[in-house]
Structures are given as C-alpha cells and as structure tokens.
C-alpha cells in the first residue's frame, strides 16, 4: 500500500517535472509530557535485554537526545503458567539497573538476566516521582529454519545477492519480527542498529511452509546477520503500528496512533523468541 502511494507521489512528481519545497516555521502550543518505555527481553542474547525509559518532548524543542529518565526502579519477573493462570512470585524479581549511565543514561540492563522461551514475564517500573508502569509479555518458542539458500545476479556494475529461507508456520507460530544487520561483526547491541526490519503475521500463510525473501537485495560479499523473532499478538500489534508510524510521511500520510501493551506509559514490553542466522554472501 505505502509502496504504491510512494510510486503515486513519484508519478505526480514526474508530471510536475519538478516539485519544490522550502523550509517553513511552525509554531505549536506546548505538549503534555508522557513517559515512553521500550522494554525488550529474549532467550538468546543478553545484549537484547533492556528497558529504556524516556519521555516525549515538544516537537520543535532543540533537543535530539533520548530524553531518558533516570532513577527509576525497574524489575522483570519470570512467571509460570498453571492452567489458565499466570503466576509471578515477588521472590523471582530481577532488577534492571541504569548501568550504562555515562554513554546511554536511562537504559536499564541486567547482564545476568536470562530469558526463557515459553515463559511469561512481568515488567514493573516505579519512577522517582511515584508513577508506576506495568506490562506483561511472553517469550514464544523460536522458529526453526528448514532450508535456506542464496544466489547472485549481475546488474550493471554490481552483483546483487539474494537469500531465501523456509520454515513451517504451525499453530504456535503466529507473529514475527525480523531484523537484519549488514556488518562484519555480529554483536547486536540493541534492535535499533539493524538495517532492515520486517514485522508480519500469518494471516495469509498459516499452517504451512512459510517462505521468506526480500525484494531489496544485498551485495556480493556482504555478511548479513538475521535475528528472526517470534513475538506475541499484542507485541505484534504494537510493532505493526510502530512500523506504520515510522514509515508515515508524504502527501498521503495520516496521523498514526502507536498501540501500546503496557499501562502507565506509551510503548511496549516485548518478549522475543529469537533464532539467529548468518549469511556470508560470497
């Protein structure tokens, strides 16, 4: 949809020969501040376990920082599922601490935290001013890649590289979030350093072999690290709306309200059941 809209814009631009633009000043009234939480846990790597607390800022405030909030008490508790009940014991609380204060304040981590697949988790945040934020998530069972391949195609002076993967989308596989990083080093220090993101569900392809191929190729020689994650439904709805918000723009843009799966703040608490794969495209 958005691709077609972009092509529509492009076509209009062709028609206009050149569309023009200029910088303008906009005065907006002050906004009301809200707390923002980005919490990520997984069963594979500790570099993707973190809780980030920040706040919204006035749109044109000359400040492009994270606007993080320090001094919060952050706990994540692993729970267990008994029948229809989910139980969290206060004794299982694990604190997340603002350890990286000097380089990234407001980023709460726990190097010893180890998420487990198919377990529920509770997030509790108490801010210094007394406000409370709560959220729950679940780390789904990671998917298992059945087959993969890659190939090359020469286009002009470049050699494009493509890869293809397949897995079985069974009843337990429903919602996906993939991230890819084209880099020599595979250390995935936060989802934000990835080059490409894919968020999708199994509405159209369900209970059968699930193929995956990108339209935008890599180049010959690239090393691509792929983090393929299963996520829960509410987490998917958050990241799907986030994707819409992140790609929103142009003449057909509409205000996008990002959904949330936490209370007391905007944002998400996402449990990722991650499968990692690396392609050496050479």
């Amino acid at each position: 949809m958005s691709k077609i809209k972009h092509v529509a814009l492009l076509s209009i631009a062709i028609l206009a020969i050149v569309s023009c633009e200029k910088e303008i000043d906009i005065n907006l009234p002050p906004s009301s501040e809200e707390i923002v939480v980005e919490a990520s846990i997984n069963q594979l790597t500790s570099t993707l376990n973190y809780v980030i607390i920040s706040k919204t800022v006035d749109y044109f405030k000359p400040d492009l920082s994270l606007n993080s909030i320090r001094g919060a008490k952050v706990f994540i508790t692993e729970g267990s599922i008994l029948g229809k009940d989910t139980i969290f014991n206060i004794s299982d609380r694990q604190p997340f601490i603002d350890l990286l204060d000097t380089i990234a304040p407001g980023v709460y981590v726990n190097p010893f935290f180890q998420g487990k697949a198919e377990r529920p988790y509770l997030l509790e945040i108490d801010l210094a001013d007394g406000r409370q934020i709560r959220g729950k998530t679940f780390i789904p069972k990671p998917l298992s890649i059945d087959s993969s391949s890659f190939w090359f195609e020469k286009v002009n002076k470049d050699t494009n590289a493509y890869f293809y993967m397949e897995w079985f989308d069974g009843p337990a596989q429903n919602n996906y979030r993939f991230a890819m990083l084209n880099a020599y080093d595979s250390i995935f220090t936060g989802w934000g350093i990835a080059d490409r993101f894919y968020t999708f569900d199994d509405e159209r392809i369900n209970n059968q072999k699930r193929p995956f191929q990108m339209l935008n190729p890599f180049k010959y020689g690239d090393t691509v690290h792929i983090y393929m994650a299963e996520i829960g439904r509410q987490e998917y709805l958050f990241w799907d709306s986030f994707r819409n918000a992140a790609n929103n723009g142009g003449p057909f843009s509409t205000p996008v309200a990002v959904k949330s799966n936490i209370t007391g703040a905007i944002g998400s608490f996402t449990g990722y059941g991650i499968t990692y794969k690396r392609f050496l495209l050479r």
């Binding site: 980005e38 006035d58 994270l66 986030f242 992140a246």
Partner: peptide
Amino acid sequence: SRYAYRFG
C-alpha cells in the same frame, strides 16, 4: 510532540 524509540 515526539519520542525516541527502537534503541541501539
């Protein structure tokens, strides 16, 4: 307003 997200 705006906020920072997708941290790395």
